[in-house]
Amino acid sequence: MAFDYDKYIRPGKLPHIWCPGCGHGIVMKGLIRAIDTVGLDTKNTAIVSGIGCASRLPGYMDCCTLHTAHGRAAAFATGVKMAKPEMDVILVGGDGDGTAIGGNHFIHACRRNINMTYIILNNKIYGMTGGQFSPATPTGAKASTTPYGNPDPAFDIAKLAIGAGATFVARGTSFHANQIDKLIAEAIQHKGFSVVEILDDCPTTYGRRNKFKSVIEMMNHLKDIAVPVKAAEKMSPEQLEGKILTGVLFKEERPEYTSEYAKLIERAKAAK
């Protein structure tokens, strides 16, 4: 049988709002397969997002869904998870939402190591507002607000997450569709704050400004630059020039926030 995505999608909500060729739908399918693999109870699963194209994803999912304000997904989600740690909490959002306006909440969620999974759909652009450059836009790239090329250096979102203290960090691409669910499933099962960055395409507002003739060229580009971490170990720095590592980039065990808080409650009650 074909995989039954409909089981996890709210009736009547498709087709989605994303443009032709946008990879967000590919990531959403990966998320659904991951939820199915892990066996999450949708009644007990919150999917939280900010604002932007990627942040429209929760609306399609038949879960407890929370489409918050721009950049605030991690902070809202922290409230949900702290108040009800027995819920599974998944965050979804774009690169601008998560690392510009929401950057502070993002790094602190990483630092706390609260048991949630943050899926960042990195298409290197603010798509919903028409293609302004984001903190993930490569230097020199064209966006509606960088007509002479982007003067800013870009974040490496995965490195940012590792540096800030996330205990599981993975990266995939929308081209490598069959890997997405595996990365997300492993992230959900990891106890701690997990970040899955999916390099994604925005043919409408990024591709056409940056000499990609079609989404096919954009996906081929993702295919060309992606190097699995294992393969990269055998490659020279010269060979890795311009490449992006994919797979599980970082994983460690560290005390998880809500579990630690549960212990704090026990101490407070004992001291009463």
Binding site: V48, C64, L66, T68, A69, R72, A74, A75, F76, A77, T78, G79, V80, M82, A83, K84, M87, N104, H105, I107, H108
Partner: peptide, 18 residues
């Protein structure tokens, strides 16, 4: 204790929904 005032407001709204 959240990272900023905005985060504190967000966290209480998220928690209230539970």
């Amino acid at each position: 204790q959240m990272e900023d005032e905005i985060g504190a407001m967000a966290a209480i709204l998220g928690a209230s929904l539970t």
